[in-house]
Design a protein around this nucleic acid. Structure first.
Length: 856
RNA sequence: GGGCGGUUAGCUCAGCUGGUCAGAGCGCCUGCCUUACAAGCAGGAGGUCCCCGGUUCGAGUCCGGGACCGCCCACCA
């Protein structure tokens, strides 16, 4: 424990580990499952990948969730922040494969069972990393109840859902063209594909027509011509209409290609004729189905040309094949034209390799029937998505949803509960492996594929609570309250959770979705390791403290993307330090035997109690509106702008000198300190928890304290006005002193010529360094303050010349303002059409300005 | 090809339904080691609110057009 007296700087590095340990030991973060979800509060964490370590996005997202969780816990709700990690199929498998490669072996070499065992070991070793990092951030997750998407119970949930969807006819197996990722050697879903601009060449290739003549097609992938099975033209295209029904001859291969008419073909693009390659292009696949064209594949899962192609091209990579095909065509004089062509091309989001569309036998999930209720849930407001732009995005995507390819050719993940008979054609879909084939008694073999990781993630909010069993946890915490996430997984994850929740858990999984900002590098680029633009939140915590990082990230957050602001983090660090020192002032001087009290009589005490009330209200309102930046910055404004700059300065004499008022003052100071700590705790939990341990009479952890909700009745407009006026007066006099060159220590003789300062006159005098008198004769200067002026007498040690110059400047500005105001009021349109209140306000303003000119 | 968002002080950003809204933090300048905090305190300078039109008594704030950034969605070879 630091010594309060001598520790003038708050030291997060010393404090934070102690506080984390106390929180974890307290059991405060682990609620017993009692009551119903309607009365309790819960958030399911977006499960980080087991491969992961805390990056800036995690730091922001978990700061957001923690501020909500702590706020509600302190409101007295039974609160659970569901914690766990995701097995992250491709990402994790890739890591372990890399490790094997370093050891000179491979997954194929060691076999599936050994590989899966290795991956579990890997998970045991690296899985705790990110959870420990969450603790450093101060995240108050339920660490006693950690889940993993491959836990036994979780597997049970996944299998049950798969079987159920299969039985409902929503999951089916199909030969279809899929996004093949040669990098991970697996199919991936549409959502895992990203478009990148690529500079290609658009080749025009002449195909002979059997009956004579030729047709020229345009393509950026000449190598796929080896798998052409047709040519298409637009039926309305006069240039090509005569070719429909004819047959073209595929160069280099000799295959006969039917020429068909299809509206898909754009007459004005390229040559107006399109080669059709159903095996290697999604559009051509559809066209091929429409016209009954053959499906030929010449590119294999390894991204190389297969033996189906002419021998001279076999086994070439796609790029080599392209060169070879172009060379061969050129030799035959069939390249009619080539031009540079920049266009968007699909790449794997996972491996970064160019997608190879392939026809493949995969498992799919039909989405439209599940999409309906998921759309309704958001349209009706049962699920609210913030900000609204993301809500619109969500609805648009669901309206055009397409089947989801859910099988992956990986080893790490939920293996499909599908079994095939070795002897006959029978297929079984069941959570329990059948012993033998029911039809022929033959051996059964399990499907090799695993499910897309997002299939299991979609069950997260209820599978973590024990579903399909009717557990107390499920009853107490499902549906959850808020889901906070980055927008890039709104479709991949959030939409699917809503569908699955409605279909299987009987309710929406959460009532609010908050889509947070993406934090960019300070220069506006994406934060990424490869660009070298990443900033490690853990290093920032080392440097500035977890409270500072949390405050900074919350203060940065917005409804749109933001640049990382080191200044905001420093602002948070200053706030923590300020609160520490303000607390020292209070705790080292207060009478600790006095009970805290929030109903004082002294004017400035009533003022701070009122301001505190206002701060509590606005902080709460901002948090409930998911406006985290204003919640954080509002806290800063209260602590600096009201508590420290004014209130503590106002009470110092009473505090030091003691006297009769000391016990009332102590009661107020303790009350205000406790309330301030509680209000700030969700945002900056460490420093507030640390200070709490020094507060006389504090029992237990601050994190477990129950705070009172804001109460309008505690506002004190009279005190607000009187003290507010005094503050303005002090500011005015200080500004004047500085401008006219009064030395900082000099006491200036003067007389208050304004009403409403009776209770605060001595305070104004002290803070503005005035010697107030009631007599004094003719003033040498007047300083305008609210409701009047301060008359200044000779002897104040200021420079009359400077004072006069300053007065001249001020007078000029005031006259301009008066003129503008007069002009406005002379405008009949304004006086007649503007609301009376606005006109009155303008008149008052004018009167004030005129009075000030007078005073000068 | 569609859709969305942004452009306010040197920097990063606030500014709700049009009328003290021209602000904050950082930076800068000046003065203070005042017994909570010098990672502090007090004061100050600094902006044609991207451009052009329009609506209105009045426009960063609403409408139209334009410029420049950024993001999302999309199967034109």
């Amino acid at each position: 424990m630091p010594d309060l007296e001598s520790t003038t700087r708050y030291d997060p590095a010393e404090v934070e580990p102690r506080i984390v340990a106390r929180w974890l030991d307290s059991g405060l973060f682990h609620p017993e499952p009692e009551g119903t979800a309607a009365e309790n509060y819960s958030i399911a964490i977006p499960p980080p990948n087991v491969t992961g370590s805390l990056h800036m996005g995690h730091a922001l997202n978990n700061s957001i969730q923690d501020v909500l969780v702590r706020h509600h816990r302190m409101r007295g709700h039974r609160t659970k922040w569901i914690l766990g990690t995701d097995h992250a199929g491709i990402a994790t498998q890739t890591q372990v494969e890399r490790q094997l490669r370093r050891e000179g072996t491979s997954r194929e070499e060691i076999g599936r069972d050994a590989f899966v065992a290795r991956t579990w070991e890997w998970r045991e070793r690296y899985g705790p990393t990110i959870v420990d990092q969450l603790k450093r951030l101060g995240a108050s997750c339920d660490y006693d109840d950690e889940r993993f998407t491959l836990d036994e119970g979780y597997v049970e949930a996944v299998l049950k859902v798969f079987v159920s969807l299969f039985e409902k006819g929503l999951i089916y197996r199909d030969r279809y063209i899929v996004n093949w990722d040669p990098g991970s050697r697996s199919a991936i879903s549409d959502l895992e594909v990203e478009e990148r601009e690529v500079a290609d060449v658009l080749y025009s290739i002449r195909y002979d027509v059997e009956a004579g003549g030729s047709v020229t097609v345009a393509t950026v992938r000449p190598e796929t011509m080896l798998a052409d099975t047709g040519v298409a033209v637009n039926p309305a295209d006069a240039r090509h209409r005569h070719l429909v029904g004819a047959t073209a001859i595929l160069p280099l291969v000799g295959r006969r290609l039917p020429i068909v008419a299809d509206d898909y073909v754009k007459p004005d693009f390229g040559t107006g004729a399109l080669k059709i390659t159903p095996g290697h292009d999604p559009n051509d696949f559809e066209i091929g189905l429409r016209h009954g064209l053959d499906q030929v594949s010449v590119i294999g899962e390894d991204g190389r040309v297969t033996a189906t192609a002419p021998e001279r091209f076999a086994d070439l990579t796609v790029l080599d094949a392209r060169e070879a095909v172009v060379a061969a065509l050129r030799e035959e004089g069939r390249i009619a034209a080539e031009e540079p062509y920049a266009h968007e091309v699909p790449f794997s989001h996972r491996s970064g390799e160019r997608i190879e569309p392939l026809i493949s036998l995969q498992w799919f999930m039909a989405m439209d029937r599940l999409a309906g209720p998921a759309i309704e849930a958001v349209e009706s407001g049962r699920v609210r998505i913030h900000p609204d732009s993301q809500r619109r995005r969500y609805l648009q995507w669901l309206a055009e949803i397409r089947p989801w390819c859910i099988s992956r050719q990986l080893w790490w993940g939920h293996r499909l509960p599908v079994y095939y008979c070795e002897a006959c054609e029978e297929t079984y879909v069941s959570a329990q492996a059948p012993e033998r084939c029911g039809a022929c008694g033959g051996e059964v073999r399990r499907d090799e594929d695993v499910l897309d990781t997002w299939f299991s993630s979609a069950l997260w909010p209820f599978a973590t609570l024990g579903w399909p069993r009717h557990t107390p946890e499920l009853r107490a915490f499902y549906p959850t309250d808020v889901l906070s996430t980055a927008r890039d997984i709104l479709f991949l994850w959030v939409a699917r959770m809503i569908m699955m929740g409605l279909e299987f858990a009987g309710d929406v999984p959460f009532s609010d979705v908050y889509v947070h900002s993406i934090i960019q590098a300070p220069d506006g680029r994406r934060m990424s390791k490869s660009l070298g633009t990443g900033i490690d939140p853990l290093e920032e915590i080392d440097r500035h403290g977890a409270d500072a990082v949390r405050f900074g990230l919350l203060a940065m957050s917005s409804t749109q993307d933001v640049r990382y602001s080191a200044e905001k983090v420093e602002q948070g660090q200053k706030l923590a330090n300020k609160l520490w020192n303000a607390s020292r002032l209070v705790l080292l001087n207060v009478d600790g035997r006095v009970a805290p009290g929030g109903r004082p009589e002294a004017l400035e005490d009533r003022w701070i109690v009122s301001r505190l009330q206002r701060a509590k209200e606005t902080t709460s309102a901002h948090l409930e509106a998911f406006d985290f930046s204003h919640a954080a910055l509002g806290l800063y404004d209260f602590v600096y702008g009201e508590l420290c700059d004014w209130y503590l300065e106002l009470v110092k004499p009473r505090l030091y000198e003691g006297g009769d008022q000391r016990s009332e003052l102590s009661a107020t100071l303790l009350h205000v300190l406790r309330e301030t700590l509680a209000m700030a705790h969700p945002v900056i939990p460490f420093v507030t928890e640390e200070i709490w341990s020094f507060v006389p009479g504090s029992r237990g952890l601050l994190a477990g304290q129950r705070t009172s909700p804001p109460d309008e009745a505690l506002l004190d407009p009279e005190a607000d006005a009187e003290v507010g006026r005094a503050i303005e007066a002090v500011r005015a006099v200080r500004g004047w002193r500085d401008r006219v060159g009064v030395a900082a220590g000099e006491r200036v003789p003067g007389r208050l010529e304004a009403p409403g300062y009776e209770a605060m006159a001595a305070q104004v005098a002290r803070l503005a360094r005035l010697d107030l008198r009631t007599d004094g004769g003719d003033p040498v200067a007047r300083v305008v303050i609210p409701a009047g002026a301060l008359a200044v007498f000779a002897g104040g040690g200021f420079d009359p010349g400077a004072a006069e110059r300053r007065r001249g400047q001020r007078r000029d500005q005031l006259r301009a303002d008066v003129a503008r105001s007069e002009g406005k009021l002379a405008n009949r349109g304004f006086v007649e059409k503007a609301p009376a209140a606005v006109v009155d306000a303008e008149r008052e303003k004018l009167a004030r300005l005129r009075a000030e000119v007078e005073a000068l």
